[in-house]
Computed example of a mutant assay.
Amino acid sequence: MTRAISRGRRAVLAGLAAGVSAVACASQSPASPRAVRIVVDPGHTPAQGGALGVRGIREVLYNDRLAAQLVQALTLAGFDVALTRGPTENVSLEARAQYANARQADLFLSIHHDSAQLQYLEKVTAGDLDAYRTTRPIAGYSIFVSQRNPRFAQSYAFAQVLGEEMRKLGRAPTLHHAEPIAGESRELLAPDIGIYRFDDLVVLRQTVMPAVLLEAGVIVDPADEGYVSDPGNQARMVHAVVVAVRRYVMTAGKTAGRM
């Protein structure tokens, strides 16, 4: 049965993250300055659209929209940002990780929108479209890291600041992925800020830089879908991610040219 991580283990993870970051910075000599490289990964593809939301819209469209806004904001903030795929491209999970590795990215962020297991869903219609809706409220963001990522400690460090900034938006994280049911049972590392461990996520375990997956909201929950579809809330979520990236870079002691 899944259980929340103990305070002691969380302290160890935080300390490990700080230690690894300090060693990494100390071991690299200054080079010609360059912007911090970030790869943003819009989850799913046109061919495999992901979750079907309460409005009958596939998850991939939500992911593409938020990822595009995020790329623009991170670029304006001075980061060197690239997408793993365009809105019309069908790119495999392995190819996304390979792209980020070849680009020598400093940070990888995969953008998704969430659903729930079928036992908590009912099939409905949205106009003439099939759709799914939760039978009970399931709302909030969640963040995933993989211990199979070679920079797990740094991944967790970024997940922490991302969770803190998302929490400041006034939304609680969704904890339904920790339920001991088929398809869930994920280890909940930080229940207060919604961090889960999911070791087998391909884009997290095959990337060689710190990597995190963000589920921005639950699109099968009518209220939460309304939240993530609101342009003002999208802007606030994008701002939270940008602030989290800045905090991570500063905390890790990583400045342009020293990543």
Rank of each mutant, 00 (worst) to 15 (best):
M209L: 01
D224F: 00
T255L: 12
A51V: 14
V242T: 11
V71W: 05
L16S: 15
A256H: 07
R136I: 08
S29T: 15
E89A: 07
Y132E: 11
T207E: 07
D224W: 03
V212S: 12
A157M: 10
L201D: 11
P42A: 03
A244S: 09
P150S: 08
A11D: 09
A95L: 01
A105F: 00
L93S: 13
G15N: 13
L118V: 05
G43S: 07
I38L: 13
Y99W: 11
A190T: 14
D199L: 01
R55P: 01
A211S: 15
R65F: 07
V39Y: 02
L214N: 06
A159D: 05
V81Y: 12
V245N: 08
S110D: 06
P180T: 03
Q234K: 08
A22V: 07
G43Q: 07
E179L: 13
V238E: 10
I5N: 13
A77H: 11
V202H: 13
G232M: 02
A14H: 13
G86A: 04
A77W: 10
V228L: 04
V243T: 15
R65Q: 14
D80H: 08
E122P: 01
T84C: 03
E225L: 00
H177L: 14
A14V: 11
S146Q: 11
V218E: 09
I143G: 06
Q104K: 15
T45N: 12
T135M: 13
R197H: 04
P87R: 07
A244G: 08
V218H: 09
G53M: 03
N63H: 09
A95V: 01
V212N: 13
G217R: 05
T88E: 08
D114Q: 08
D80G: 05
A216L: 08
T88Y: 01
V212H: 14
P180C: 03
N90H: 01
V12Y: 13
R9T: 13
A256C: 15
R96K: 13
T207P: 10
G127H: 09
V238D: 11
E59H: 06
M166K: 03
E89C: 00
K168V: 01
L214E: 05
T135P: 07
M166V: 03
Y248L: 00
A95K: 14
G19C: 06
T2N: 14
G163S: 09
L66R: 11
P137N: 06
V40E: 10
L204A: 05
A11S: 12
A244N: 09
P210D: 09
V238W: 10
V249M: 15
Y120S: 04
R3I: 08
Y248F: 15
A235V: 04
E225K: 02
A105N: 04
F144R: 14
A14M: 13
V238R: 10
V249N: 08
I143V: 12
A172E: 12
M1G: 12
N63W: 06
G56V: 05
R7Y: 10
R34F: 03
V243A: 14
R96L: 01
V124Q: 11
P137K: 04
Y99E: 10
P137I: 01
I111A: 04
Y99P: 00
T207K: 10
V91K: 00
L107S: 10
A67P: 12
